[in-house]
């Protein structure tokens, strides 16, 4: 190869090498996440103070009866075995939560409380403990934000986090997550009826 060609090749390689290693600005960084400054809170469901009677008043609004109407005056010490035994209030309540009975969670007494399996009483604000005694894996996941969900910050040095309560998603009496219609079906280019037929065909 002649000198000209050699120079040409060298020039091309140099241009190539230059193109591959263009200078870039040093990356800047934001401050590192530090010790937690903000709290993690749990959403507290509103306190239940009344129950529906199934009847309406003149304006069509549901008639509700405060809990204390019964549970302060004529509370008996015993809690029924099943919903079938309820004759006055809470009648027709659906219950589908394993093989539990009312007494598995509810305790009579004054005021009515919830009861753990070992006999200790817990206030309704601590209801989660009741769930946790059977649903350990879920509860441990919940404690590490791996179940249950919420809103807010992953970095507690930059903002707080609020978690859902068990009962936000699971009705204690019918805890199974209810089916729902999915949102936002894919409508991207090419995905039409053909894809659906194929996947079900």
């Amino acid at each position: 190869m002649g000198g000209v060609q050699r120079n040409l090749v060298a020039l091309l390689l140099a241009a190539l090498a230059a193109g591959c290693n263009r200078p870039q600005q040093p990356r800047r960084f934001g401050p590192a996440p530090s010790a937690s400054a903000y709290p993690v809170t749990t959403n507290q469901p509103p306190r239940l103070v009344s129950v529906g009677t199934g009847e309406s008043d003149a304006r069509g609004e549901e008639l509700r009866v405060p809990c204390v109407t019964c549970h302060s005056m004529r509370d008996k010490a015993t809690v029924p075995e099943s919903t079938a035994e309820l004759k006055e209030f809470h009648v027709g309540m659906t219950f589908a939560h394993g093989g539990l009975s009312c007494a598995s969670c509810h305790r009579g007494g004054q005021p009515p409380t919830l009861g753990l399996a070992d006999g200790r009483a817990v206030p309704t604000s601590e209801a989660m403990q009741l769930c946790a005694q059977c649903h350990g894996p879920q509860f441990r996941g919940y404690l590490r934000s791996a179940h249950g969900g919420g809103r807010g910050h992953w970095d507690l040095s930059r903002g707080p986090r609020e978690k859902n309560h068990c009962v936000d998603c699971h009705d204690p009496h019918v805890p199974k997550f209810q089916p729902s219609t999915p949102v936002l079906p894919p409508r991207d280019r090419g995905v039409t009826q053909q894809t659906k037929e194929a996947s079900h065909g």
Binding site: A15, L16, A18, G19, C20, R22
Partner: peptide, 8 residues
């Protein structure tokens, strides 16, 4: 090469 960013 040399002008853009040639991923070579």
């Amino acid at each position: 090469p040399g002008v853009g960013r040639f991923n070579w």
